[in-house]
Design a protein around this nucleic acid. Sequence first.
DNA 1: AATTCGGGGCA
DNA 2: TGCCCAGAATT
Length: 354
Amino acid sequence: MDFASLRRRLLGWYAKHARDLPWRQSRDPYRVWLSEVMLQQTQVETVRPYFERFVAAWPTVADLAAAQEQHVLRQWEGLGYYRRARNLHAAAKRVVDEHGGEFPRDVAGLTTLPGVGRYTAGAIASIAYDAPAPIVEANTARLYARLTGLREPVASTAGQRALWAFAEQVVPRRGAGRLNQALMELGALVCTPESPKCDACPIATHCAAFAQQATRVIPVAAKRQTITEVREAAVVVRRGADVLLRQCGPGERWAGLWDFPRFPVEAEGPLFATRELVAGVERLTGVVCDSPRHHDTLRHAVTRFRIRLDCYHATRLGGRVRSTQESPVKWVTVAGLAEAPLSVTGRKIAAGLR
DNA sequence: AATTCGGGGCA
DNA sequence: TGCCCAGAATT
């Protein structure tokens, strides 16, 4: 492989076709890191407004470190994979407390930060500091697989080893940040999953898959995971103008987010669920409610689950909120729901209240 | 080495 | 509905 020629052609193409993305306006390691964490498993156009809002709210890593985690989660709401937001805040605090407000400059140091793995560390090191660090993510994995004619599944251990080996070879000693971004951009705009635009590709002559007319079968996909059906209930318990909320604990999904009492249900439908619902609310919150009335059914799919969520309304009869350190429980006004970080379904339920 | 995280957007 | 997305952490 003639890497010098490949880089030259790629950079020429990138100079003409690079998108104007907000995180490309500066090489501030804080902004590079923030964008890279947001972009993990998340599309560019989805991230764009979130990035703008975060930078406006917290212009520096010190500002972010000083923020309340609840505020960070609230701003993250809707972006998904909420663990990233908690790791983001924890990493900001560590950068301030342990590194004097400066991000580590190499891959090894960056990888010690929570939420920063091999890819993100390589991206920050190369883009912010121009370190010769390789990267492999969704766009580059597909691009490298086609360039090298990789017949292993890209997600497999063997496939990943081959991709990272190629990434190390292609990354230059100087200008790594620009080249890495050009590689990702080519993957995103030209070397697309379906119908790659090989006639517009500046490095098609370097591409094994193009030579073999195999871009349709490379990259080799992993087998898809099986879907699990889940049935759950969420209960909006009211006490006058207030509604009952609990905060999800550290070991729980949605850790740090608030939610209406929510739990899996065995009963086949709303008609048979009353006893189970009252017990579930009391177990999670300590509050006893009357017979919940079925209000709505939300269906949504997430990762490997397909969920039917039955939403109920009920009124407090007795009991006191049982708040623990790990999982606080509180009454909030309907208006106060706007400040609490909620999951997407939690926000949908909240939107239906007044 | 595989699974999980229970996202969100799009055709 | 299935596929994709600038992956990381966990077992």
